[in-house]
Design a protein around this nucleic acid. Structure first.
Lengths: 242, 242
DNA sequence: AAGTGGTCTAGACCACGTC
DNA sequence: ACGTGGTCTAGACCACTTT
């Protein structure tokens, strides 16, 4: 049954909403195969074509991955292809290398004005701050400072970060059931201060890319705020405009 | 008729190819309405649903714009909404303001090693170089150096640029029949040299965003190479990651 | 009222992967 | 051989815009 005109939403979008609910509720987990289009059509009492449109949109949103002949799967940050969805850093010459993540520090704090606004929590609420380095081919290239809402990331420790040898988001996914859906990056150019210069082994005042990222999970809920400083001597930030 | 398996391409994609040919050939011009889905279906001897899928993809590619109840139109850079498709610069606070473009210089040269490689022309082929400033609310924020293949842009002059009060790409579209389809940007952080510092009224050595853009028209043909230096004191480069 | 794109359905068949 | 997603068709009806 379709609603009346003012808030008109087509059937396939309502189906999409129901399927996102199923994802949020953990009915289908990352990496798992979801029911076939026929089964979903029966479950929601619509035609297979309508389910198809819903799944099409969700695949376009990177929530699902279709594999012809096999089935449709819940997108996962364990998928190696998912890594460069959020990390747009590419070497000037030479092949793409997977970066090595080096967690440096991890401590508790209380949310200040800015953190609380961005993470949609109350000032004074607990947050966790992580500092880590990214190395490409042994060379330090990125230094990140990551702010996480403490309530969601209870139990996160430096040891946990250090013993995890895959991407941060894949850790968040398995340990905290958190799936990063989309992000927004604000980029500017800044000069390296003393501590950053030291970490990246460059002179103080060196121009760096400042990349501030807010990452959202289902329902446009912000769950991560990070600021990365990128050394762009041998890498650049690549952006495709379509 | 669908081809055999190894190079299998579905019907709707073949239709899409034919429609792109029609666009390239200038059969349908920017801003104009294309034939209805029924007419196209008859023209290509396929069902309306197949045309629909072709048009869907072309709309997703920003080649066409659908308007319910009115028709489907060829995308145009005259559309004010098209401006910020390629310009991702947003003020830190305050509303989005349309920038003012100030052409500074325009001269002829011969393509060097790098320009010829990027623009897919021969070294020594004529190119046109444009320098221009972008001002937001009277303040200089971006200085661009733009390299164009001379053969395509014959007759481009500084006066022409200065008398045009809309976006560069809308000028290219109307004066040279050239439609910019997609672009790729490589971003790094650099220090302002003397001449740039002067143009942007900042001290020498100021960290700036260096944005190198290669822009393509139909058939992935590169037709513009530009390097912009962005002052990011009161603006940032915004990127949505989906 | 007429024309456009947008949705929904039902059914047939194709391509791909697995058993 | 079977199950999955992918394509194609034909037709009905809805929503939006213009005449």
């Amino acid at each position: 049954m379709i609603q009346e005109s003012p808030t008109f939403s087509p059937l396939y979008r309502q189906i999409k909403g129901l399927m996102i609910q199923a994802l949020e509720a953990g009915e289908w987990l990352p990496g798992q195969m979801i029911p076939s289009e026929q089964e979903l059509a029966a479950r929601f009492s619509v035609s297979q074509g309508t389910v198809r449109k819903a799944v099409d949109e969700m695949a376009a949103d990177n929530l699902l991955v279709r594999k012809q002949g096999k089935g449709t799967f819940v997108a996962s940050h364990h998928d190696p292809r998912a890594l460069f969805r959020f990390l747009r850093l590419v070497p000037v010459d030479g092949d793409i290398v997977h970066p090595e993540s080096v967690p440096l520090e991890c401590w508790r704090a209380k949310a200040g004005q800015e953190a609380s606004r961005i993470l949609a929590i109350k000032p004074g609420d607990p947050i966790i701050i992580v500092r880590r380095l990214l190395r490409f081919a042994k060379k330090p290239v990125v230094i990140d400072e990551i702010y996480l809402p403490g309530e969601i990331f209870q139990g996160l420790t430096l040891e946990m970060l250090q013993s995890w040898n895959s991407s941060l988001y894949s850790l968040f996914e398995t340990r905290f059931g958190l799936r990063m859906i989309r992000a927004q990056e604000r980029i500017r150019a800044v000069a390296a201060d003393r501590s950053v210069a030291e970490a990246l082994k460059v002179p103080e005042g060196k121009p760096l890319l400042s990349v501030e990222r807010v990452t959202y999970t289902y329902g446009d809920k912000p769950v991560e705020w990070r600021r990365g400083l990128y050394l762009t001597d041998e890498h650049y930030y690549l952006n495709e405009l379509n």
